[in-house]
Every structure is written in structure tokens, then in C-alpha cells.
Amino acid sequence: MLSSQTSPSRVTIPPKLASVLQVTPMALVFLALVIVPLGLIFVVSFLDYNFAQVFPELYLETWVDVLTSDLTLALYLKTFKFLIIVWAITAPLGFAIAYFLAFHLRSNWLRTLLVTAIAIPFWTSGPIRMVSWVPLLGREGVVNQALLGAGVIDEPLGWLMYSEFAVLVAYVQMLTMPMIATALNSMAKIPPSVIQAAQDAGASEWQIVRDIIFPLVRPGLAIGTIIVTTAIMGDVVMVKFMGGSQVNTVGMSIITDLNAFMYPPAAAKSILLLVVVLSIVVSLLRFADIRKELRN
């Protein structure tokens, strides 16, 4: 660790105090813009309201409504359905592609090129990525034209775009990349000698993947799963556009309340969403120590 013994003429700050001072700006931002608003949302969820106004009076009906309505259950089931399907596709896909990049490619520059190619779409604009599905999946899109031309169908498929299917297509396109990245990060830390030893002992490729690589990559996959979970549970933009305002999820129902100035129900639903997301994240964090994962 660093010593604080500089020349006696200078004013010295104890190292711990220096650290506290250095972290203060960030701490203040999180305090003022995350923790205080979180507390406010919690308080507002218990208040009475009518159109566009919130009264400082205790009102528990909002919570009773949110917690007992069938609609809440249906919304969560729908959101979890998306989450499970997307996870079941992106986790194996991300693992397989990361495995290919880490263990099968011979040339380093090809690996760098492929990783960059996979990462770049992640940096392009979200709305633009969504609208780019229209020429492919739309009524007159490439897929429908091809299927019509091949005589597979007689009229264009309507469910390709502005549907649950379209939402899933867009989610998988965006969320495979974090899975690849986190799995690749874990794989890069596996010493080649370990694989070599297993090969020398006569292990098959499948045995190596199952018994050595997969257990070591589990923390990476857990972090990838956290990213996928928070992205889907909190998403409103993708569902709204790709679902053509036909698909309702937890996030969409909060937006609907906000647009109607119904703050207490929006607050109660947000708190519930927060509790659900954080419990998933906390249970996943058992598999991975984020700070350790970031070190080499």
C-alpha cells in the first residue's frame, strides 16, 4: 500500500481520508439521484391520490390492488416468459460463441476482429437497431417476400413484426453480446496448461467443456444473466416498438400509469419490480464476485 510519508513541508492528508474525499463526488451523485429518489418513490406509493394530484394521506389500497390483482400476476408471468426464453437462447449461444473464440481460433487478429464485429452493434443506436427489423420482418419484408416466392405461404405472415415474436428477436439480437463478453472474460482466465493436462489424460473435448470449462465460466455466465435480467425486466422501449403497443409487460404498465399521472400506483409497481429484480440479482451474485471477476 502507499505510504503517506512525503516531505514534512507539505500538508499531508491521511490516505484513508484522501480516499474518502476522492469517492465523495460519486457518493453524492448516488445519494442524491438514486437513494433519495428511491426513498421518495417508496413514500409516494403509500399516499392517496386523484387525477394528477397526490395527497399527503396514508392510503394502502394502492398496494392491496397491486399485490392482489390478477393483472399484476399476468404482467409478471409475461415478463418472466420473455426472460426465460431469451436466457435459454442467449446463455448457450453466448457460451458456444465465446468457447469458439477462446479455444478454437488460431490467429489472434481474427479473434480481435470477430470480437469487435460482435461488439459494434451494441454501440449503435437502439431505436435504429429496432427499426432495421422492419425491412426484414415487415408485411412486405424480405422474409415474407422470400416465403411467398418459395410458395411456402399464400399470404404474408403478420406475426413476424409488431408481435411477441418480434420482441424476442430484438432481445436476443441485443443481449447475446453481453453473454459472449462475460463468458469470454472468464474463459480468458483459464490457464491453457489446465486444458493441456486434461487432453494428455485423454479427456474428450466434450468432457473438457463439461467438467473444466463450464464450472470455471459459471461466474461469467451469472454476470451475463444479471445483465439480461435487468435489461428485460426494466425494458419499455423495445417492447413498445417491436410489440407494436400490443404487448404489455411490467415496465409498460408503469409507463401507462406515469403517462396518466397516476404516481402512487406507478410507485408501488416500481417498488415491487425493484424487489423482484434485486432478489434475482442477489441470488445470482452468489455465483460471482463482481470485483474479483474484473481483475486478471
Partner: peptide, 13 residues
């Protein structure tokens, strides 16, 4: 990890 709408709503509130 907090849903974006949640944070945005909290700050606006």
C-alpha cells in the same frame, strides 16, 4: 441494475 424507468421516475418525482 435498477430499471431505468424507475430511476428516471424517482428523479423526476
Amino acid at each position: 441494475v435498477l430499471p431505468g424507468i424507475f430511476v428516471g421516475f424517482g428523479i423526476a418525482l
